[in-house]
Nucleic acid binder design. Structure first.
Lengths: 341, 341
DNA sequence: GTGATTTCCGGTAACGTTTGCAAGGAAACG
DNA sequence: CGTTTCCTTGCAAACGTTACCGGAAATCAC
């Protein structure tokens, strides 16, 4: 694993290391001929700048940390893809880590990223620990919360870009009401999750105004996946079903619900309407045609990266900006008026 | 962004930096009391080792690079998740980059990872450039190819762990034959992709032995996604369909085919049997029930990480090991005997 | 031709660690 | 009590860069 250093190049070119560094980086203070000669030698020798050393002295890595709860969820995958492409356009690389909340996994990931001296982190682990984490790492490195909107009321301020989950919940409830549903279920809330608390809150608020009855099914597990949706739905379907519509915490969860409904012989949407959240690619499939609330991952990615980089550059810790993106309803085939046979 | 260094801790504790370093790292050569005192101060001050500096001197980062063509594909997402978890168990962090082959994206990613001095890379970009890349980076850093088996015959040797694509192709053809199909299509080959060349080869070989007729539809685009499958299938369905079964390059592609078939009014599996590859989570959904060839991502992840770490430790460049994993047929609902009404 | 200015380059320190070597003191041993 | 050994600690060099400052040569103005 022989590695060519700047010193080797300097020796080979008969110049000092300073000159080589200048040839590689800044412009004018070097003659075109020597620069060309040095660059040629670098190419021949296969020289590659040691970014560790460079970052050590410049105290900037041009790497952004991204923490996601579950890359297997297509929504997160799409988000991560968009974040990576956009960051790369801006000259940044992304270091992706997945970690579920609980048992200190997130903390140790953040610690690792700080150790790696990333320039900032994007944290998409929507739970109550966020507020704790934020305070703890507040003046250690710039961070923006992703998807986990911190409510104004909580007194915790954070840089965040998020889907407007409260409004999303409202939209869902209003849509159900418009279709004629009066007895509905909200499925997939994880206790302590800011995202879901808000979404649930919006759903409940609108439901109350509209005189609808809401049953809530909580997510016991950490992840919002197909299998967790399947588990929850099975519990729900174990007793006789009075409700006519179901709002799921995510499309993945909704797909699990569909699976359980299929097994339980519950017709969709005739017997039960199902509305998802995220609008993942698979929701649009002809056999699925899941009605859902769409979040614009490309928009979220751009906004969050841009915000984070502003923070990195400005270095100001005294103001917070929170960007909310309203989800939009995508009507497909899994929602219909209740069957009144 | 004030950062506490080892020097600060040393000053605070009234010892030398050496002592602090020893308290943080190796064991016996320090008294328990001072160690405890130092560690306490580190906690209080929020000290975090600068991994850049450590790596610079130890010339080891404990970071592995992972290059994937498309994280949005659930198969890659699952693979990446498994790789990350397994690597973390072994004390390594993963730096994930997505890059499509062509226009030098892969090369620049590899260059970046080398610059970051990752200990090794996992490269899952199955195309012909692999052989070029391998030779170029051969003695710069350890690498293992993922999913892209390099055939013995090609004379190029590489460390690789891969699904046995040739056998996979055979299995598919034999399965179709067993069901009674004689006129079939292979869809999704990307010209120049090693993976698909092999898979196609196995499919063709078995088909020839079994006297089946094969039509091949090539993938024009770079990615193996739902939309590319949809595009290819639309082209195929534009003219009258004589074939009765279709083997798709991946599950994502197969889902795109299903979408196009749905629009074209082609019944599955009555009019056309469809077989996928990968066995992604969504293939098992009750509305989909895609028959497919399963690859064990967990196994692939463990094998590749283990192999790579062996390479990192052994530092031997003279032997290559290639691990093949046989895919297994998963029969669900999209394959049936041809309709002979 | 002298001084001022520009152009190009080198020496050296620094970034925050780890590590080999050596030294100081205490304990053990005769 | 002298010597050896062990335990604990510190000094200084090194990793591969970049940045500051200063100097030599070349160019320019007069």
């Amino acid at each position: 694993m022989q590695r060519v250093t700047i010193k080797d190049i300097a020796r080979l070119a008969g110049v000092s290391v300073t000159t080589v560094s200048r040839a590689l980086n800044h412009g004018p203070e070097i003659s075109p001929e020597t620069r060309e000669r040095i660059l040629r030698i670098c190419r021949e020798e296969g020289y590659r700048t040691n970014l560790l050393a460079r970052s050590l002295i410049s105290s900037r890595t041009n790497v952004l940390g991204l923490i996601l709860p579950d890359i297997a969820n297509p929504f997160h995958a799409a988000l991560s893809f968009n974040i990576e492409t956009y960051a790369r356009e801006l000259g940044y690389q992304v270091m992706l880590c997945s970690g579920r909340p609980g048992d200190g996994q997130i903390e140790s990931l953040i610690d690792f990223l700080i150790g790696q001296r990333v320039d900032g982190i994007l944290l998409s682990s929507a739970n109550d620990q966020a507020r704790y984490l934020l305070r703890r790492y507040r003046d250690v490195l710039p961070a923006v919360l992703l998807g986990a909107c911190v409510p104004e009321a909580s007194g915790i301020r954070a840089n965040a870009v998020s889907t407007d989950n409260f409004v999303g919940g409202r939209i869902a409830a209003e849509y159900f009401h418009r279709l004629g549903h009066r007895d509905v279920v909200y499925l997939g809330l994880r206790r302590g999750s800011v995202t879901h608390t808000l979404r649930h809150g919006g759903f409940l608020a609108a439901a109350r105004e509209l005189d609808m009855q809401v049953t809530t099914v909580e997510n016991p597990g950490p992840a919002s996946s197909i299998s967790s949706g399947y588990q929850m739905a099975r519990r729900l379907f174990a007793s006789p079903l009075t409700q006519t519509a179901l709002f799921a915490a995510s499309d993945a969860v909704a797909l699990g619900v569909i699976q359980a409904a299929d097994e339980a012989g519950i017709a969709i949407p005739e017997r039960l309407s199902i509305l998802g959240f995220d609008d993942i690619e698979y929701a649009a499939l002809p056999n699925i045609r899941l009605s859902t609330l769409s979040r614009n991952t490309a928009l979220m990615a751009r906004a969050s990266v841009r915000l984070l980089l502003e923070l990195v550059d400005s270095d100001s810790r005294d103001e917070y900006t929170s960007k909310l993106i309203t989800p939009t309803l995508v009507e497909r085939a899994t929602c219909a008026p209740p069957y009144s046979g």
